[in-house]
Write a protein that binds this DNA or RNA. Structure first.
Lengths: 226, 226
DNA sequence: GGGTTCCATATTGTATACAATTCGAGTCGG
DNA sequence: CCGACTCGAATTGTATACAATATGGAACCC
């Protein structure tokens, strides 16, 4: 898309992701426009996209605020992701061709490489991991599924805390990917669905455990994301 | 939201739904603005929303076209809807309170009333049916699920063809709703999920059968929506 | 003190003008 | 006849000005 609108989107998104804006903070169009060096018009576009991403919420009068997520909300998103990615894996298994399978194997090999160093290269891991899941999603061949998962997959919270994964968790992820590949090789949709769903669920609990250790949860059940 | 932007959204949506614009038609902002009696600014807002609804698609250079749906695409959407509504029903069953259950029973009673006349009052049926499913979705208490289902639930194709349901299908829908309610009354999440999922799947096949009888499918596998 | 009304201010909605880009027809050369 | 190129027309992107509306606090009444 266009330059200014994209820059606004990226800039605001980054500010939210990095925690520069805390959940609940008000986001005025004028202020954002100045901060991004563009006019309000592309900012409004960006805000619409960010709303779709659920990174911001809007009041009845269209005022924007940084979304805040309760632990329940986060669990919720992971649950949906587990379901949708499981479904994607099932469809992918039924449609898998040998070329894609080879590509997935290569991708997971690189994942292993990222983990084998010490300390592990987490950024590379995340990039390859994203690629792995993207390949599967593509193989699922469902336009709507792509749209749904896109809105669920890149959540701010998850993104920021992936760095807290331990080496053991990273390694286990690779093993689970292997099992997904085995299911693909046998075109076993149910197996692929089950293992993928469980893969995502484990990721959530790893996240929740790590996060519980790092941040306090106040009496209302909300946790600080910053 | 604001008046002009809403009017643009509603007007364009209606034009697509009614078939005034055929799938594949180009939608210029200027032309739409004039047709809606507003300027391009609110039209651009509306187009963004319609894109999220997947009622229109956009090229790499942001030109807009009325989306066209293959039979596979439609099957796809129903499959996702079956999964998501099944999940919603499961969560709803686990959280169901007596007041909501009573409201659902009343709602289904009205559904029956809409069917009992001859000819059946299809508009009333659709309205109450929407209410029934909305109540369940609300009880599921998942913000993200609401967002996902919203983008899947009101598809143009489905909406327009619901009128083709036969009296027998309408009656069966009520019975299936009864079974969902029975599952709710027992707080049996798995049962609720299974019956709801099957409810949606049956709706799809009823739609597909009715539609196959009414419209031709050309050699590319695409079907006319108008 | 608690609540209400009112108004200045801030914020969002819309229209319009203009810049940047894209599309496609027509042309030229092979 | 086909393909690459060019340029005018059409379309989208952005900035800005102004209108409409919401917000928050001060003044006010009970």
């Amino acid at each position: 898309m266009s330059r200014a609108s994209d820059r606004a989107y990226g800039t605001i998104r980054e500010m939210i992701m990095s925690g520069e804006f805390a959940p609940g903070d008000a986001l005025g169009e004028e202020a954002l426009a100045e901060r991004c060096g563009v006019s309000r018009t592309p900012v409004r576009d960006a805000l619409r996209r960010l709303e779709a991403d659920m990174l911001i919420t809007r009041t009845g009068t269209q005022r924007s605020f940084v979304a805040d997520w309760s632990l329940d909300d986060i669990a919720d998103v992971f649950e949906l992701r587990a379901m949708l990615e499981g479904y994607a894996a099932q469809r992918a298994a039924e449609r898998m061709d040998d070329d894609t399978l080879k590509a997935l194997r290569a991708c997971n090999a690189e994942l292993r490489k990222a983990v084998s160093t010490s300390p592990p290269n987490v950024d590379l891991f995340l990039e390859r991991n994203r690629e792995f899941h993207a390949l599967i999603l593509e193989s699922a061949a469902s336009r709507k599924l792509v749209a749904l998962l896109a809105s669920v997959i890149e959540q701010p919270v998850v993104w920021r805390t992936a760095h807290h994964y331990g080496e053991e968790e990273l390694r286990r992820s690779c093993s689970e990917h292997d099992e997904v590949l085995a299911a693909f090789a046998r075109r076993d949709g149910d197996w692929a669905e089950a293992i993928m769903s469980s893969h995502i669920r484990r990721a959530f609990h790893a996240y929740a455990d790590a996060h519980r250790g790092l941040t306090a949860i106040d009496k209302s059940g909300r946790m600080r994301m910053a």
